[in-house]
Structure formats: C-alpha cells, structure tokens
C-alpha cells in the first residue's frame, strides 16, 4: 500500500504566511500598552489639574494652565534633543534609522511648541494683561518654533533624499543650542517670565499643586513616547516606500530598454 505524503512547504513559506498575517499598522502590543497608560495618566491629569488641586492665591484658576504648559515645554526640549542627537548621528553614520528619528523628534517638538506658546499666551492674558510680549523667553521660544517649521519644510523639498537629510541635519544640530538659550533666557536677560519652579531644592510649588504638575509630566511623557514611536515608524515606512517606488521605476525603465523596438516600416514613394 502506498501513502501519499502532503506536499512539503517551500522553504520560507511559513515565514511568508506569518508576514502576510501581520496587521498593516504602526501599532504593536507594546504601543497599545503605552497608549492605554497614556490615557489613564491623562485622566488622572484632568482629575488633579482641574478638580483636586486648588486655585492659586495670585494666579487664581489660571494656574491650572501650568499643569500642561510646563510639561509641554519640557517635552518640546526633549523632542529637540532627539533631533539634534539623531542629526549628529546621521551626519556620522548615514543610517536611515537616525534620519527617521530626527524627523520624528522635530515634528513632535513642533506640536509641543504650539501647545507651549498657546497655553502660555492664554495664561499671560489674565496674569500679565496681554497675550504676547516680546520678552526674552517668549521670543526665543517663538524663534525655536520657527526653526522647527523651517526644519520640517526643508525635509519636504524635492531633492535627492540623502542631500535633503544632510541639509536638515545641519539645521537639526542648531536646535539644542537654541533650547539652551530658551531655557537660560530668564537668567541672561531681564524677563517677565518667571524662573524655574522645580529645579531647586526648595521648590516654590507644593502639595496637590506639585502632585498635579508631576502627573502632568508623567502623562505628557507617555504621550510623547507614544507619538515618538508611531512617528518614527511612519518615517521608517516612508523611506521603505520611497525605496520601493525607486526600484519599481528602475525595473520599468529596464523593461522598456529590453523590449524589442518596432520594425521600421518601409516608406514607398
């Protein structure tokens, strides 16, 4: 009696099937956990920032804007730090991962800079009596925001990708020096903006206000991490998609050059 064996799968077929089953998304189990943690921390921030913490003696309820303004400014700095370090690494190593990280850091830093400037202006109106003043801290933050816009605009130019990344990296190197200017501006120049509230052994904020601010740092940190991972993966996929487009264009060009040319028709007078 003969038995027929099932056909042996081709080498790599199991891997191909596993690849095909992967969901087409930038999410992963880890980012889902990170996203859930960010949502929980945001809910806690709303509870502490808007309900539990009391109004300030001087700033009244507008102190509640500080629970998002200060963490947003901090993660604006962190985003710039990522971009500057990744830009330096790109210029040194020329590996696509560093380029993707630099782009991700700058875009998220821009989002946080808009929140920083927006909440700062909304806080300034009831506290200083104006939405905007050409103060050293405010002006240097606006300059940093303009640099981030310029950096992202540079990345969208129709250039050779390597040349574009190199030019963007040179601008990316200037972000952290500018962050230092923003951070030190309240000490280097006379400024309306208050100095550091937390970076002292005896912080000028305490009790539930301090807890609310700390919850703000945690929530914004988790949000920043979630956004960074997704934005990095998008930049990575973008590079891969561009590479595939280029390969497809080259293959089409090769096929075109290999195709037999049509015989010339004899023209009779």
């Amino acid at each position: 009696m003969t038995t027929t064996l099932p056909p042996r799968p081709a080498p790599g077929a199991a891997r191909d099937e596993a690849d095909a089953a992967r969901p087409a998304t930038t999410a992963s189990p880890a980012t889902r956990v990170l996203g859930a943690a960010a949502l929980v921390a945001t809910a806690l921030l709303v509870l502490y920032g808007l309900v539990i913490s009391p109004a300030d003696r001087e700033m009244a309820d507008s102190v509640r804007l500080m629970y998002i303004h200060v963490p947003a400014a901090t993660y604006l700095y962190v985003g710039c730090f990522f971009t500057t370090v990744a830009s330096a690494m790109w210029l040194r190593r020329r590996t696509p991962g560093w380029d993707a990280l630099a782009e991700a850091g700058a875009e998220i830093a821009l989002v946080f800079s808009i929140i920083t400037l927006g909440t700062g202006s909304l806080w300034g109106r009831p506290t200083w009596g104006t939405y905007w003043t050409w103060d050293a801290r405010l002006t240097s933050t606006a300059v940093l925001t303009a640099m981030l816009v310029g950096y992202l605009a540079l990345r969208r130019l129709e250039l050779d990708p390597a040349a574009r990344s190199t030019r963007a990296a040179v601008l990316g190197l200037l972000l952290v020096p500018n962050v230092i200017v923003v951070n030190r501006s309240v000490e280097w120049w006379r400024s309306l903006h208050q100095g550091s509230t937390l970076v002292k052994l005896d912080p000028s904020i305490e009790g539930t206000m301090l807890v609310a601010l700390m919850v703000g740092f945690v929530a914004f940190g988790l949000i920043f991490a979630w956004l960074m991972v997704h934005r990095f993966r998008i930049a990575w996929l973008d590079q891969k998609a561009d590479g595939l487009d280029l390969e497809a264009a080259l293959a089409a060009r090769r096929a075109e050059s290999r195709a037999p040319t049509a015989p010339e028709t004899e023209v009779t007078p």
């Binding site: 998304t25 997704h230 998008i234 996929l237 595939l244």
Partner: peptide, 17 residues
Amino acid sequence: RGRRLARQVPPGERRWS
C-alpha cells in the same frame, strides 16, 4: 498615515508587528 503607508510596504519591513 501609518496604516496607509504600512499597506504600501511588504509585511516583512514592519518589524514591530
């Protein structure tokens, strides 16, 4: 944007999923 781009790239390039 991630979903749109992920569909354009072979699954093997999405190392995280």
